[in-house]
Write a protein that binds this DNA or RNA. Structure first.
Lengths: 237, 237
DNA sequence: TTTACCCTCCCCAAAAATAGCGAGGTGTGG
DNA sequence: CCACACCTCGCTATTTTTGGGGAGGGTAAA
């Protein structure tokens, strides 16, 4: 790792503000001499948190045209977990080709390289490097920075998650061993009766555990309780 | 990155056999001069895939005692996405203390450092470094290898995933948009009626979606379907 | 064009979950 | 010692969910 990148990495660990986070992408872009650097975090409904050097026009157009739903980069990265060169993706569909042309018009380079990042609760984020050079030159850029960028990308994601949890502080309840076991069995698809006999207790007792867990988790019903327990990492199926 | 680790990284990219994969953990252990190196993955079906230097006695005992369900390392890593030093985890419960003592008896070192790795379809794996030195010495080991090991851990996971998809054609069902929406609403704790009105459809129709999703997911009931969809990363609450 | 999947609606009987009311015994920590 | 949380069991009644069975129209790929 070069000293510049080393310094950069140490600096972003100190970032505690969204504007600085945004600036970091600009700085990294200049450091690596690429066209764009983007950190992008998507949840099920759409963009939630992003920082990058794309023009606001392109970001707006992307959202307006709902490109999220067909972007080959999103799909490709969602199915992999290793970084992917855009050239390796499937751009064969007509919609994908139109999307790519549109992106070029808005100043996005013809080369791209994206790292998928996955976190707790199905969190899924992308860290993208974008360039405008020949295929061979792009390969060299990737080969040179690949490993350093994996570390940097994870650092970005750590920051993004920290911002998010900072905004909505939540206390995570703790389940008693029997409660956790009961909820786990229910999450595995067992009925109350089955779960009860699995745990060697009466169905009624099991029901008490589930109810108790449900109240602790602030859930409206058993299914909700299971979902919350899973999301909070309190149980593992 | 040292030349040894550099070479190691290049070598494991050539691995295409489980035995070699296993050998790699031994080689890495000797390279880093630590007590154990372990890669461990439990997939959504509950099948275990692991390679490491733990004694087979300890692995057997771990499975027999079902330590998976209370191992603080598993829980701690599941809730985070950054590497974690075992000392930072919550070992206060009696069960956790007993587990730790048991581990020591079976030759597991008193220090540990684990990287959680997350992949497609809710995949969750652990890459662990285990040692038997003082706290300060362990901190130094971590600080020295942290970044290199993140790259190596991801390389291990890449290999493991390649083996897995090679052995069994992956059966990760895909939900239609309405099915996913229906399951998501149910997972949020809404009743069928509420979810239906939220989606602007009749309760009967919503039921069809939930049933359809349930069949696709191979779930025994709605709660199970929600749990599976969450575990596979098909929905996000 | 056919096939396949997606979206929407409906009925019914049985099973399960929910929401209350109770009762005890165990252990931990202040 | 006394709370407090945990673990275990019983009862009744109401509401909801489940698991089958249908039926028709749309869209999109093969």
């Amino acid at each position: 790792m070069t000293t510049e990148l080393q310094n950069f990495l140490e600096d972003i660990q100190q970032v505690d503000d969204f504007a600085e986070f945004q600036d970091a992408t600009v700085r990294l872009r200049d450091l690596l001499k690429v066209t764009h650097v983007v950190y992008h975090w998507v949840n099920s409904v759409g963009e939630r948190f992003g920082a990058g050097t794309y023009s606001s026009e392109w970001v707006d157009r992307y959202l307006e045209k709902d490109y999220l739903r067909m972007d080959p980069v999103i799909f490709g990265c969602f199915q992999r977990f290793t970084p992917v060169n855009w050239k390796q993706l499937d751009w064969s569909s007509k919609a994908a080709k139109a999307f790519f042309r549109d992106a070029l018009d808005y100043g996005v380079g013809n080369q791209g390289w994206t790292i998928p990042i996955r976190g707790p609760n199905g969190q899924f984020a992308l860290f993208t490097l974008n360039g405008d050079v020949s295929d061979a030159a792009w390969e060299r850029v990737i080969a040179r920075y690949e490993r350093d960028l994996m570390v940097i990308a994870h650092e970005f994601n750590k920051k993004a998650l920290a911002f998010d949890s900072h905004e909505e502080g939540q206390a995570c309840p703790s389940l008693s061993p029997r409660e956790a076991a009961a909820i786990t069995h229910i999450a595995k698809g067992l009925s109350r009766g089955q779960a009860a006999s699995e745990m060697g207790i009466s169905e009624h007792t099991l029901r008490v555990y589930v109810e108790s867990a449900r109240h602790k988790l602030g859930a409206m019903n058993t299914t909700h309780a299971v979902a919350r327990a899973l999301s909070m990492g309190l149980i593992i199926v």
